[in-house]
Amino acid sequence: MTTSNTVEDSPPKARRPRLATLLGRQPLGIVFAAPYAVFLVAIFAYPLGLAVWISFHDYFFAAPGAQVDRPFVGFDNYISVLSDAAVRRSFVNVAKFLVINVPLTVVLSLVLATLLDNAVRARGFLRVSYYIPYVTSSVALVAVWLFLFGMAGLVNQLLGPLAPDPSWLVNGGLAMPVIALFVTWKQLGFSILLYLAALQNVPKELHEAASVDGASRFGSFMNVTVPGVRPATVLVVILATITGANLFTEPYLLTNGGGPDGASTSPVFVMYQKGIEQGTPDVAAAIGVILVIAVLIISFINKRLLESD
């Protein structure tokens, strides 16, 4: 992402220079940005702080306005989170999800974007086809997949005797891979979009030079395209990680509550169970804090790894 501010520094125009040093050259900007700043503090910064606070206290829901004692408990909530098999399982599930989803997303979207970039015919139709799952509600799409991958669904009908037993969504080994496949399909359009933009920055001359040097189409793809779109790859991998950390609708609806037997739970789903259903928001907040830290660390490592070599 471009983070630099490219606004040129023009000579100061403010009539009150002292005020200008205090508030900036155009203090009206503070007024313009204030609603958004207040929104970010109220809906992001404050809740982030509150999450950390809740996670270090014995927190429970009480009637509004009631004065209750919520003692500081140190790392107790974190210890109970990390020693909880259900929570650990949800993290392992997300790891499985990422192992399938990330490589599949990167490879498929880069290949499809490269092909789309070269296709002249029917580009509009093809682009719409690949973007459409991205703009559609997960709930609506899960409804179709429930029937496609159901016990007597079309997929099993096609496979006949090869159909897995137990069926996809109730099979402990297959539930998470099906979710990973579903999310890859649903989100692939956005990665294709990012790669299509990045491909415009790969100079065509490089491909020509490679082909003059006798490189094959595949060789030119590996040696010119892949390194050329690295910034987009960083973004695609980070976005896939974030999507993985976010999973809720799919385990809730597609595998009927993270089933079978917790094989497809996700951390956000466990947060929902513990925080809202079982009334232990302190434990759930601790899971949230761990996830936020994990997402930030993984994003940072991804960026470093993919940009360094």
């Binding site: 203090p27 009206l28 982030l48 980070i238 974030i242 936020v292």
Partner: peptide, 24 residues
């Protein structure tokens, strides 16, 4: 516009784009 706190606001916006709402 140049105003005090612009860079801080921009940094916070980028952070919001990375840390998903679901975690909070």
């Amino acid at each position: 516009l140049h105003f005090r706190g612009r860079d801080a606001l921009f940094a916070m916006m980028l952070l919001v784009l990375i840390v998903p709402f679901q975690l909070l």
